[in-house]
Each structure stands twice: as C-alpha cells, then as structure tokens.
C-alpha cells in the first residue's frame, strides 16, 4: 500500500471519529442545557468548547458565549478545525484521495454526511441542532458498519487505527474537562445538577446503558471514572481504545511483516493500562494522569507516522 494512501486512511479514521464525538458532545450538551429539569445553563456550553479545545478560537472571533452561538460554532462553522462540518470535510478530502481503497458503501456514508452540510442547514434552535447531530450520528454509524463489512485488509486496519487513536484522545479530553464536576473540591456531591452532568458524560460516550449493566450501586463519580478509564468492555473507554490500537497494529504487522516503534509503544502502554486501577488514578490525581495520557497518545501518533512513512 502507498504510504500516502495509508496516511489518508488513518486521517480519515481520525476525522470521522472526531466528527462523531463532537456530534455526541453537542447532543449531550443540548440535553443537559435544555431538556434537564434544572438547566445547566451556559456553563455546559463553555465546557463543550473546552472539551473540543476551541474555547480560545471561539473567543477570538469576538463571539458572545450564547447557546446558539456555541452550537453553531461546534456544528456548522467552517472557520475553525474543531467543528463537525470541518471534520467531515477533512474526512471526505482524505477519503477522496483514497477513493479506490474504499467500498462504495463506506464512501457513500462519508459523502452523505458531507451533503447534509452542503445543504447549509441552520443550527438555530435545539430541535434543528438535535436533528443535525442525529443525521451525522446515523452516517457515522453507517460508516462504522461499512468499515466492518470491508475486506479485513490494510485499508480497514489503517482506518481503525486512526479511529482508535482519536477515540483515546477524545475520551481523555472529555474526562479531563469534566473532572472538576466529577471530583468537586469540597462541594456537596450528588445534587441534581451533578447527576445530569455525569449523565452527559455517559451520553457522550454512549455508555448510559453500559453503566447500568456494570454498576449496581447507582450513579457515582468513581464508577464513572472507572468505566471510562479501566473497563475494556466499553468501546470508548481508554482501556478499550488502547487495546484496539495494539490489536490493529498487530494485524498490520502480520500483513506487512514489519514490527516497529509504534508497535512497541502501544504494547508498553497497553501492558501498563491493564494493571491500572481507577482508585489509584483518582488518588494520584486524575488531571495529571489524563494529561500524561494525552501526551503519550500524541507520541504514539508520531511513531505511527514514522513507522509507515507517512511524511
């Protein structure tokens, strides 16, 4: 496989995964803000900006922190790279560059997602925002299915590698921004707002039902942290993303007969992760842990580029 093709597939996986994540985040934020009995207000939107690392880009445009503005910014705004529309556009650009490697089904899902935005939809009221993110989620689900139905070859593995690396990053960021909600310093835990906030996090990673299955003792911050970090059963947990990365790199190594720097880094990380207990993480400082995780993930990203000669 051409190095350029591999690089495009990997980035396609990353961007489409990111679009999906932002869509879920926006959806959960709308629910938290509007649909919960006690509105979380603008703070919810502010933290959505923080999770996507776009708070400063938002402020630079001289924008006021208003619901509608933030929702628009995160969905249809084309002027910064952290909106759904830009992620889908980047995913599609990469997909076009490797059109021959994708099945029609996979390409169509990306192209349809892109066409939703070509029609220039507004993001004016919560209903419009929800229907837009619903449409995006449908296409990302369709894409996910299409990738799983593709031949189990390098094409699939590179897309899934991009997805796994991106997913690890996204979940870590989500937790990192919301950690003060999960572990408030000296404040009462368990109020109505907090329950809603935790639910928001679970919704963003599609883990509401999973939580109920795995924990019988009600909604507790330590359980939420445990689920998102250490439970490999949950596909969007750090543990699952880390395992998936090792898995996919292993598949690629089998195809190409090459082991490299990225394989080693991923295996070391997974090995460490398998011994991690969420209690220790909380005790040692959740924020520090997540920061280190995000950095290591970025280093792994660099190693992947070197190993497969993306440059």
């Amino acid at each position: 496989m051409l190095s350029r093709t591999a690089s495009s597939l990997y980035w396609l996986g990353r961007y489409f995964e990111r679009a999906d994540f932002i869509a879920r985040l926006v959806e959960a934020t709308v629910r938290l803000d509007v649909l919960s009995p006690r509105s979380a207000g603008l703070a919810a939107w502010g933290s959505a900006l923080a999770v996507t690392d776009t708070a400063s880009a938002f402020a630079e445009g001289g924008r006021e922190l208003r619901r509608r503005e933030v929702a628009r910014f995160l969905t249809v705004e084309t002027c910064h790279p952290g909106s759904i529309v830009r992620c889908i556009d980047m995913a599609r650009t990469n997909a076009r560059a490797v059109r021959t490697a994708l099945t029609r089904e996979a390409w169509s899902a990306i192209n349809r997602a892109w066409l939703h935005f070509e029609a220039r939809p507004g993001a004016e009221d919560p209903t419009a925002v929800l229907s837009l993110v619903e449409a995006v989620k449908n296409e990302t689900r369709g894409f996910e299915g299409a990738v799983h139905r593709m031949l189990r070859n390098q094409t699939t593995w590179f897309i899934r590698l991009g997805q796994a690396v991106e997913r690890a990053d996204n979940t870590a960021r989500l937790l990192d921004v919301k950690y003060h909600i999960l572990l408030p310093a000296g404040e009462r835990i368990g109020g109505v707002v907090d329950r809603d906030q935790w639910t928001t996090i679970l919704q963003t990673v599609s883990a509401v039902t999973a939580y109920r299955w795995l924990y019988s003792d009600g909604l507790k911050p330590s359980n939420v942290i445990d689920l998102l970090i250490a439970r490999a059963e949950l596909p969007r947990s750090l543990a699952a993303s880390v395992e998936e990365t090792v898995d996919v790199l292993g598949q690629l190594a089998r195809r190409t007969g090459q082991h490299g720097e990225a394989d080693r880094m991923a295996r070391v990380r997974a090995n460490r992760m398998s011994k991690t207990r969420s209690g220790d993480v909380i005790a040692g400082g959740l924020h520090q842990y997540l920061e280190a995780f995000i950095l290591e993930n970025a280093q792994l990203h660099g190693a992947i580029g070197r190993q497969f000669k993306f440059a």
Partner: peptide, 21 residues
C-alpha cells in the same frame, strides 16, 4: 494503485513507488 507524483521516486533510472513496506 492510484498514485500522485509524490508517491513516485526515480532511482538508478528505475521508477519506484513509496509504500508502507
């Protein structure tokens, strides 16, 4: 393969394409 110019390199009067392997 669908290649772009940057995927090809000439060495010793022979054309090669750059692949992951």
């Amino acid at each position: 393969e669908l290649v772009e110019a940057a995927d090809l390199v000439v060495d010793d009067d022979i054309v090669w394409m750059r692949t992951i392997a």
